[in-house]
Protein backbone atom coordinates (compact mmCIF):
# COMPACT_ATOMS: atom_id res chain seq x y z
CA UNK A 1 0.00 0.00 0.00
CA UNK A 2 2.81 2.30 0.93
CA UNK A 3 4.55 1.54 -2.31
CA UNK A 4 1.40 1.93 -4.35
CA UNK A 5 0.48 5.24 -2.75
CA UNK A 6 3.97 6.57 -3.22
CA UNK A 7 4.05 5.44 -6.79
CA UNK A 8 0.64 6.86 -7.60
CA UNK A 9 2.01 10.18 -6.52
CA UNK A 10 4.38 9.91 -9.47
CA UNK A 11 1.38 10.07 -11.78
CA UNK A 12 2.00 6.92 -13.78
CA UNK A 13 0.39 3.48 -13.35
CA UNK A 14 3.49 1.46 -14.25
CA UNK A 15 5.62 2.30 -11.19
CA UNK A 16 2.44 2.06 -9.13
CA UNK A 17 1.93 -1.52 -10.25
CA UNK A 18 5.58 -2.48 -9.81
CA UNK A 19 5.89 -0.86 -6.39
CA UNK A 20 2.56 -2.29 -5.28
CA UNK A 21 3.61 -5.79 -6.28
CA UNK A 22 7.02 -5.29 -4.64
CA UNK A 23 5.43 -4.21 -1.38
CA UNK A 24 2.95 -7.09 -1.46
CA UNK A 25 5.78 -9.54 -2.08
CA UNK A 26 7.73 -8.12 0.83
CA UNK A 27 4.67 -8.48 3.08
CA UNK A 28 4.20 -12.05 1.85
CA UNK A 29 7.80 -12.83 2.71
CA UNK A 30 7.31 -11.28 6.14
CA UNK A 31 4.27 -13.50 6.64
CA UNK A 32 6.36 -16.55 5.75
CA UNK A 33 8.71 -15.78 8.62
CA UNK A 34 6.02 -15.52 11.27
CA UNK A 35 3.52 -18.28 10.45
CA UNK A 36 3.93 -21.67 12.19
CA UNK A 37 5.88 -24.31 10.27
CA UNK A 38 2.79 -26.45 9.56
CA UNK A 39 1.24 -23.59 7.56
CA UNK A 40 4.29 -22.73 5.47
CA UNK A 41 3.50 -25.37 2.87
CA UNK A 42 0.00 -23.98 2.28
CA UNK A 43 1.25 -20.42 2.27
CA UNK A 44 3.78 -21.32 -0.41
CA UNK A 45 0.90 -22.40 -2.64
CA UNK A 46 -0.71 -18.95 -2.51
CA UNK A 47 1.28 -17.31 -5.39
CA UNK A 48 0.52 -20.25 -7.72
CA UNK A 49 -3.16 -20.17 -6.78
CA UNK A 50 -3.33 -16.42 -7.34
CA UNK A 51 -1.69 -16.82 -10.75
CA UNK A 52 -4.03 -19.69 -11.68
CA UNK A 53 -7.18 -17.86 -10.62
CA UNK A 54 -5.97 -14.66 -12.29
CA UNK A 55 -5.11 -16.24 -15.61
CA UNK A 56 -7.83 -18.90 -15.83
CA UNK A 57 -10.58 -18.36 -13.27
CA UNK A 58 -11.10 -14.65 -13.90
CA UNK A 59 -11.29 -14.95 -17.73
CA UNK A 60 -13.70 -17.91 -17.46
CA UNK A 61 -15.86 -15.97 -14.99
CA UNK A 62 -15.81 -12.96 -17.31
CA UNK A 63 -16.76 -15.17 -20.25
CA UNK A 64 -19.70 -16.63 -18.30
CA UNK A 65 -20.95 -13.15 -17.44
CA UNK A 66 -20.50 -11.82 -20.98
CA UNK A 67 -22.36 -14.82 -22.44
CA UNK A 68 -25.64 -13.69 -20.88
CA UNK A 69 -25.40 -10.08 -22.07
CA UNK A 70 -26.09 -8.52 -25.44
CA UNK A 71 -22.67 -6.97 -25.93
CA UNK A 72 -20.77 -6.19 -29.09
CA UNK A 73 -18.34 -3.69 -30.53
CA UNK A 74 -20.62 -0.65 -30.39
CA UNK A 75 -22.04 -1.44 -26.94
CA UNK A 76 -18.91 -2.65 -25.13
CA UNK A 77 -18.07 0.72 -23.59
CA UNK A 78 -21.69 1.50 -22.73
CA UNK A 79 -24.36 -0.33 -20.72
CA UNK A 80 -24.86 -4.01 -21.53
CA UNK A 81 -28.41 -5.34 -21.94
CA UNK A 82 -29.12 -8.56 -20.05
CA UNK A 83 -29.95 -11.22 -22.63
CA UNK A 84 -30.39 -14.34 -20.50
CA UNK A 85 -29.91 -17.39 -22.70
CA UNK A 86 -30.63 -15.50 -25.94
CA UNK A 87 -27.00 -15.76 -27.10
CA UNK A 88 -27.03 -19.53 -26.61
CA UNK A 89 -30.39 -19.93 -28.38
CA UNK A 90 -29.25 -17.64 -31.17
CA UNK A 91 -26.21 -19.82 -31.72
CA UNK A 92 -28.05 -23.12 -31.58
CA UNK A 93 -31.09 -22.18 -33.65
CA UNK A 94 -30.23 -19.21 -35.83
CA UNK A 95 -26.52 -19.38 -36.64
CA UNK A 96 -26.30 -21.02 -40.09
CA UNK A 97 -22.60 -21.76 -39.64
CA UNK A 98 -22.69 -23.48 -36.23
CA UNK A 99 -23.81 -27.00 -37.15
CA UNK A 100 -21.70 -27.36 -40.32
CA UNK A 101 -18.77 -26.02 -38.32
CA UNK A 102 -19.37 -28.48 -35.49
CA UNK A 103 -19.62 -31.38 -37.94
CA UNK A 104 -16.37 -30.29 -39.59
CA UNK A 105 -14.71 -30.02 -36.17
CA UNK A 106 -15.75 -33.57 -35.31
CA UNK A 107 -14.35 -34.80 -38.64
CA UNK A 108 -11.16 -32.85 -38.06
CA UNK A 109 -10.80 -34.40 -34.60
CA UNK A 110 -11.59 -37.94 -35.74
CA UNK A 111 -9.37 -37.99 -38.85
CA UNK A 112 -6.66 -35.78 -37.39
CA UNK A 113 -6.43 -37.65 -34.10
CA UNK A 114 -6.77 -41.08 -35.69
CA UNK A 115 -3.91 -40.43 -38.10
CA UNK A 116 -1.72 -38.78 -35.48
CA UNK A 117 -2.12 -41.57 -32.95
CA UNK A 118 -1.84 -44.29 -35.59
CA UNK A 119 1.25 -42.78 -37.16
CA UNK A 120 2.75 -41.94 -33.76
CA UNK A 121 2.23 -45.50 -32.54
CA UNK A 122 3.63 -46.94 -35.77
CA UNK A 123 6.73 -44.77 -35.50
CA UNK A 124 7.15 -45.65 -31.82
CA UNK A 125 7.02 -49.39 -32.62
CA UNK A 126 9.41 -48.91 -35.53
CA UNK A 127 11.93 -46.93 -33.54
CA UNK A 128 11.70 -49.28 -30.58
CA UNK A 129 14.08 -51.56 -32.48
CA UNK A 130 17.80 -51.12 -32.83
CA UNK A 131 19.04 -49.93 -36.22
CA UNK A 132 21.67 -47.63 -37.65
CA UNK A 133 20.64 -43.98 -37.64
CA UNK A 134 17.97 -44.47 -34.97
CA UNK A 135 19.06 -41.45 -32.92
CA UNK A 136 19.16 -39.24 -35.99
CA UNK A 137 15.63 -40.35 -36.94
CA UNK A 138 14.40 -39.61 -33.40
CA UNK A 139 15.97 -36.15 -33.48
CA UNK A 140 14.57 -35.28 -36.91
CA UNK A 141 11.10 -36.40 -35.83
CA UNK A 142 11.08 -33.82 -33.04
CA UNK A 143 11.61 -30.84 -35.40
CA UNK A 144 7.95 -30.29 -36.33
CA UNK A 145 6.89 -30.01 -32.68
CA UNK A 146 9.50 -27.33 -32.10
CA UNK A 147 8.15 -25.13 -34.90
CA UNK A 148 5.47 -22.48 -34.35
CA UNK A 149 2.12 -23.44 -35.93
CA UNK A 150 2.02 -20.20 -37.99
CA UNK A 151 5.44 -20.95 -39.46
CA UNK A 152 4.42 -24.54 -40.17
CA UNK A 153 1.26 -23.32 -41.92
CA UNK A 154 3.16 -20.72 -43.97
CA UNK A 155 5.71 -23.33 -45.02
CA UNK A 156 2.96 -25.74 -46.10
CA UNK A 157 1.08 -22.95 -47.85
CA UNK A 158 4.10 -22.46 -50.10
CA UNK A 159 4.49 -26.21 -50.55
CA UNK A 160 0.80 -26.57 -51.44
CA UNK A 161 0.92 -23.80 -54.04
CA UNK A 162 -0.54 -25.14 -57.23
CA UNK A 163 2.04 -23.64 -59.60
CA UNK A 164 5.22 -23.28 -57.62
CA UNK A 165 4.68 -25.61 -54.66
CA UNK A 166 7.04 -28.47 -53.88
CA UNK A 167 4.27 -31.05 -53.58
CA UNK A 168 2.95 -30.55 -57.10
CA UNK A 169 6.51 -30.42 -58.43
CA UNK A 170 7.21 -33.81 -56.87
CA UNK A 171 3.90 -35.22 -58.10
CA UNK A 172 4.81 -33.90 -61.55
CA UNK A 173 7.98 -36.02 -61.52
CA UNK A 174 5.85 -39.15 -61.34
CA UNK A 175 3.43 -37.90 -63.97
CA UNK A 176 0.61 -36.71 -61.72
CA UNK A 177 -1.17 -33.50 -62.74
CA UNK A 178 -0.94 -30.54 -60.32
CA UNK A 179 -3.59 -30.72 -57.58
CA UNK A 180 -5.41 -27.70 -56.15
CA UNK A 181 -4.45 -28.33 -52.51
CA UNK A 182 -5.54 -24.89 -51.41
CA UNK A 183 -9.03 -25.14 -52.84
CA UNK A 184 -12.32 -26.63 -51.68
CA UNK A 185 -12.58 -28.76 -54.80
CA UNK A 186 -13.89 -32.26 -54.17
CA UNK A 187 -11.39 -35.10 -53.95
CA UNK A 188 -12.02 -36.89 -57.25
CA UNK A 189 -11.46 -40.43 -55.93
CA UNK A 190 -14.00 -39.79 -53.16
CA UNK A 191 -16.48 -38.09 -55.49
CA UNK A 192 -16.28 -41.16 -57.74
CA UNK A 193 -17.62 -43.50 -55.04
CA UNK A 194 -21.03 -44.58 -56.33
CA UNK A 195 -23.99 -43.51 -54.24
CA UNK A 196 -22.29 -41.60 -51.46
CA UNK A 197 -19.49 -39.78 -53.32
CA UNK A 198 -21.41 -36.57 -53.81
CA UNK A 199 -22.62 -36.55 -50.22
CA UNK A 200 -19.13 -37.18 -48.87
CA UNK A 201 -17.65 -34.29 -50.82
CA UNK A 202 -20.50 -31.82 -50.21
CA UNK A 203 -21.48 -32.51 -46.61
CA UNK A 204 -18.54 -34.62 -45.54
CA UNK A 205 -15.81 -32.11 -46.41
CA UNK A 206 -13.78 -34.55 -48.50
CA UNK A 207 -12.04 -31.75 -50.32
CA UNK A 208 -8.43 -30.94 -51.16
CA UNK A 209 -8.51 -28.06 -48.69
CA UNK A 210 -9.71 -30.18 -45.78
CA UNK A 211 -7.17 -32.87 -46.64
CA UNK A 212 -4.45 -30.20 -46.68
CA UNK A 213 -5.48 -29.05 -43.19
CA UNK A 214 -5.40 -32.62 -41.87
CA UNK A 215 -1.97 -33.22 -43.46
CA UNK A 216 -0.49 -30.12 -41.84
CA UNK A 217 -1.86 -31.10 -38.44
CA UNK A 218 -0.69 -34.70 -38.71
CA UNK A 219 2.77 -33.64 -39.91
CA UNK A 220 3.22 -31.36 -36.94
CA UNK A 221 1.71 -33.45 -34.17
CA UNK A 222 2.21 -37.14 -35.03
CA UNK A 223 5.82 -36.76 -33.74
CA UNK A 224 4.44 -35.64 -30.37
CA UNK A 225 2.34 -38.81 -30.17
CA UNK A 226 5.40 -40.79 -31.20
CA UNK A 227 7.49 -39.19 -28.48
CA UNK A 228 5.04 -39.96 -25.67
CA UNK A 229 4.21 -43.47 -26.87
CA UNK A 230 7.88 -44.29 -27.44
CA UNK A 231 8.66 -43.23 -23.87
CA UNK A 232 5.83 -45.50 -22.75
CA UNK A 233 7.05 -48.41 -24.85
CA UNK A 234 10.60 -48.37 -23.50
CA UNK A 235 9.35 -48.30 -19.93
CA UNK A 236 6.97 -51.26 -20.28
CA UNK A 237 7.83 -54.29 -18.08
CA UNK A 238 9.67 -57.06 -19.95
CA UNK A 239 8.14 -60.04 -18.06
CA UNK A 240 4.87 -60.23 -20.09
CA UNK A 241 6.93 -60.20 -23.32
CA UNK A 242 9.14 -63.03 -22.10
CA UNK A 243 6.06 -65.04 -21.07
CA UNK A 244 4.42 -64.41 -24.47
CA UNK A 245 7.53 -65.50 -26.33
CA UNK A 246 7.75 -68.66 -24.25
CA UNK A 247 4.10 -69.37 -25.15
CA UNK A 248 5.03 -69.00 -28.84
CA UNK A 249 3.00 -65.83 -29.52
CA UNK A 250 3.45 -64.24 -32.96
CA UNK A 251 4.52 -60.62 -33.39
CA UNK A 252 0.93 -59.52 -34.00
CA UNK A 253 -0.31 -61.48 -30.96
CA UNK A 254 2.36 -59.85 -28.78
CA UNK A 255 1.20 -56.44 -29.96
CA UNK A 256 -2.52 -57.27 -29.69
CA UNK A 257 -2.45 -58.96 -26.26
CA UNK A 258 0.59 -57.42 -24.54
CA UNK A 259 1.81 -54.12 -25.95
CA UNK A 260 -1.53 -52.52 -26.80
CA UNK A 261 -3.31 -53.21 -23.47
CA UNK A 262 -0.28 -52.06 -21.50
CA UNK A 263 0.02 -48.92 -23.61
CA UNK A 264 -3.69 -48.12 -23.67
CA UNK A 265 -3.77 -45.69 -20.71
CA UNK A 266 -0.95 -43.76 -22.34
CA UNK A 267 -2.68 -43.80 -25.74
CA UNK A 268 -5.79 -42.37 -24.10
CA UNK A 269 -3.77 -39.73 -22.30
CA UNK A 270 -2.19 -38.65 -25.60
CA UNK A 271 -5.65 -38.71 -27.21
CA UNK A 272 -7.05 -36.41 -24.54
CA UNK A 273 -4.08 -34.03 -24.71
CA UNK A 274 -4.23 -33.86 -28.49
CA UNK A 275 -8.02 -33.58 -28.47
CA UNK A 276 -7.89 -30.51 -26.24
CA UNK A 277 -5.08 -29.05 -28.31
CA UNK A 278 -6.83 -29.76 -31.63
CA UNK A 279 -9.98 -28.08 -30.41
CA UNK A 280 -7.82 -24.96 -30.07
CA UNK A 281 -6.55 -25.14 -33.66
CA UNK A 282 -6.42 -21.73 -35.26
CA UNK A 283 -3.17 -20.70 -36.93
CA UNK A 284 -2.88 -23.57 -39.42
CA UNK A 285 -6.38 -23.12 -40.84
CA UNK A 286 -6.32 -19.34 -40.70
CA UNK A 287 -3.05 -19.08 -42.60
CA UNK A 288 -4.20 -21.53 -45.27
CA UNK A 289 -7.79 -20.34 -45.79
CA UNK A 290 -8.65 -17.36 -43.58
CA UNK A 291 -12.17 -17.75 -42.26
CA UNK A 292 -13.51 -19.48 -45.36
CA UNK A 293 -16.79 -21.09 -44.31
CA UNK A 294 -15.97 -24.38 -46.08
CA UNK A 295 -12.91 -24.98 -43.89
CA UNK A 296 -14.09 -23.32 -40.71
CA UNK A 297 -13.82 -25.31 -37.47
CA UNK A 298 -15.18 -24.40 -34.06
CA UNK A 299 -12.25 -22.28 -32.99
CA UNK A 300 -12.16 -20.30 -36.23
CA UNK A 301 -15.90 -19.68 -35.85
CA UNK A 302 -15.33 -18.58 -32.27
CA UNK A 303 -12.61 -16.21 -33.43
CA UNK A 304 -14.80 -14.87 -36.23
CA UNK A 305 -17.65 -14.15 -33.81
CA UNK A 306 -15.41 -12.69 -31.13
CA UNK A 307 -12.84 -10.73 -33.08
CA UNK A 308 -14.15 -10.65 -36.65
CA UNK A 309 -17.71 -9.49 -36.19
CA UNK A 310 -17.12 -8.46 -32.56
CA UNK A 311 -20.24 -10.17 -31.17
CA UNK A 312 -18.71 -10.61 -27.74
CA UNK A 313 -21.84 -12.01 -26.05
CA UNK A 314 -22.41 -14.65 -28.68
CA UNK A 315 -18.72 -15.54 -28.87
CA UNK A 316 -18.64 -15.98 -25.09
CA UNK A 317 -21.67 -18.29 -25.30
CA UNK A 318 -19.84 -20.38 -27.88
CA UNK A 319 -16.77 -20.34 -25.64
CA UNK A 320 -18.84 -21.67 -22.74
CA UNK A 321 -20.29 -24.43 -24.93
CA UNK A 322 -16.81 -25.38 -26.13
CA UNK A 323 -15.54 -25.45 -22.56
CA UNK A 324 -18.43 -27.73 -21.56
CA UNK A 325 -17.63 -30.05 -24.47
CA UNK A 326 -13.97 -30.28 -23.43
CA UNK A 327 -15.01 -30.96 -19.82
CA UNK A 328 -17.37 -33.69 -21.01
CA UNK A 329 -14.64 -35.37 -23.08
CA UNK A 330 -12.25 -35.16 -20.13
CA UNK A 331 -14.84 -36.60 -17.76
CA UNK A 332 -15.51 -39.49 -20.14
CA UNK A 333 -11.85 -40.25 -20.81
CA UNK A 334 -10.47 -39.74 -17.30
CA UNK A 335 -11.42 -43.19 -15.90
CA UNK A 336 -9.73 -44.80 -18.92
CA UNK A 337 -6.63 -42.72 -18.46
CA UNK A 338 -6.46 -43.57 -14.78
CA UNK A 339 -6.59 -47.20 -15.80
CA UNK A 340 -9.84 -48.10 -13.98
CA UNK A 341 -11.72 -49.29 -17.07
CA UNK A 342 -8.64 -51.00 -18.43
CA UNK A 343 -8.11 -52.97 -15.21
CA UNK A 344 -11.76 -54.04 -15.11
Amino acid sequence: MLGTAAALALGSPLPAIILGLGTLTALYCLLLTIVPDRLVGRLLLVPSLVALVGTTGVPIGYMLVTSVFDVGLTTFQYSWRFAGLANYLDLLYRDPQLWPTLWRTVEYLVFGLGLQIGLGLGLALLLNREFKGKRLAQTVLVFPILTTPVVVAMMWKYMFDMQTGLINQVLGLVGIEPRPWLSVEALPWVAAIPGIGAWLTDAGNFTYGFLAIILVTVWQWAPFCFLVLYAGLVSLPQEPYEAARMDGASGWQVFRYVTFPLLLPLILTVTLLRLIDQLKVYAQIWVLFGNLVNTRVLNIHLYTLGLGTHEYGKASALGVLTLLAVMLFTWLLLPWIQGERVRR
Binding site: G3, L10, S12, L14, P15, I18, L19, L21, G22, T23, T25, A26, C29, L30, L32, T33
Partner: peptide
Amino acid sequence: GVWIVAFALAMGSWLVPAP
Protein backbone atom coordinates in the same frame (compact mmCIF):
# COMPACT_ATOMS: atom_id res chain seq x y z
CA GLY B 1 16.60 -16.43 3.20
CA VAL B 2 13.13 -14.93 3.15
CA TRP B 3 14.36 -11.54 4.32
CA ILE B 4 17.05 -11.49 1.66
CA VAL B 5 14.41 -12.12 -1.03
CA ALA B 6 12.04 -9.53 0.46
CA PHE B 7 14.76 -6.92 0.71
CA ALA B 8 15.93 -7.52 -2.86
CA LEU B 9 12.39 -7.32 -4.24
CA ALA B 10 11.45 -4.24 -2.28
CA MET B 11 14.66 -2.42 -3.19
CA GLY B 12 14.36 -3.49 -6.81
CA SER B 13 10.81 -2.25 -7.11
CA TRP B 14 11.56 1.08 -5.43
CA LEU B 15 14.50 1.62 -7.70
CA VAL B 16 12.44 1.16 -10.89
CA PRO B 17 12.73 4.47 -12.72
CA ALA B 18 9.54 6.32 -13.53
CA PRO B 19 8.82 6.26 -17.27
